[in-house]
Design a protein around this nucleic acid. Sequence first.
DNA 1: TCTACTAACTAACGATAGTTAGTATAGGAT
DNA 2: ATCCTATACTAACTATCGTTAGTTAGTAGA
Lengths: 200, 200
Amino acid sequence: MSVDSSPGMSSATADDIRRAALRLFATGGYEATTMREIAAAVGIRAASLYNHFGSKEDILWDLTSTALEDLNSESEASMATLSPDATPTEKLLTFVRAHIAYHAKNGEQATLVNMQMGGLSKSHHRKSVALRDRYESRLRSIMQEGVAAGVFHVPDERVASFAILQMGIAVSGWYRPEGNLSVPQLCDVYEILANRMVAA
Amino acid sequence: MSVDSSPGMSSATADDIRRAALRLFATGGYEATTMREIAAAVGIRAASLYNHFGSKEDILWDLTSTALEDLNSESEASMATLSPDATPTEKLLTFVRAHIAYHAKNGEQATLVNMQMGGLSKSHHRKSVALRDRYESRLRSIMQEGVAAGVFHVPDERVASFAILQMGIAVSGWYRPEGNLSVPQLCDVYEILANRMVAA
DNA sequence: TCTACTAACTAACGATAGTTAGTATAGGAT
DNA sequence: ATCCTATACTAACTATCGTTAGTTAGTAGA
């Protein structure tokens, strides 16, 4: 028995399972998806899934934790490109650009995180919420910094943060790369909208 | 056998079932909620639910269609208060105010519509999507009118519409009436944010 | 060549889901 | 007083779920 389960090393079959489960969970929901459906999408039998993952919830947790860690690390990597004396506006726009880019390029992962976290065990759910909070608090800090510096003027900094986050998260629900907007163009649009929201 | 099922006339027990199912579906998800759980929340046995609704999906459809019709009718009622020569800005702010008020006051209904429509039958799902599209297209029209009149300046009117819709929908996920923001205050905040998004 | 391991298979288990059948009871209308 | 309807109950059915057991074919290393 091997049961990779860890998002690090993994066989080709485990990756096939991840891909199939991600698509099925995101489109049909975690509870509504059966192990037999996942197996059929991969081309094996349901019992063989247990050679790669310990349980159905293990697959969900694998996908969820990977998605949240990717989101955090891509966001942190973007922010790290800024000079230490960047203005709050520069920080905000950089955050928004990474936020939009992730949600445009990883629609299924984002959908999973935003709609299917209820399928996780209590312990995994707690860890996921912590990762999500860590991500969201980064925007809250930027917002507070801008307000304190007098360059952002928002009626309520908590509400404004949620609004910016959520309009980006929604991108994962409708954006299609084959449409008439490229990802950089989409990021441009949201940079403008976010910038207007905080400017007096 | 009576099986009211229609959102019009209904017994007190049917309303109890609606309330319990709404809460359970919204918090735990449709697929993850069992008929026995709903029944227990009402204080009856699972089989007795079938005196009031034909199936589990019937309950979901009852709640979903009611929610979408309420959303549409409240929005239309708000727009009807405007004079015929109202400006695009007045129309936008009126739409946003009703949008936010509904999502603040009806968090569970909104959550249901936004996350659990996948549990509906194909036919009911089609009707729900049509109702939702009717709602969303009203904002699109306002946006187009404002852009055509030269008073709105948005980088992409489709994206801007989605952004305004979604930042309001998200309110249903976090707003609590016992917090430090009243519904009118919350509407004020979002009026400002939406107004800024379309103003050059 | 023998061995150990991976990963697939078939078959089946126990639990639980939505649902139905049949029955009992209370209250209003005739 | 008696029917009738509404609504509750108990009991059970059937389907399907996630999961386990036991087995087998292929493969890399000693």
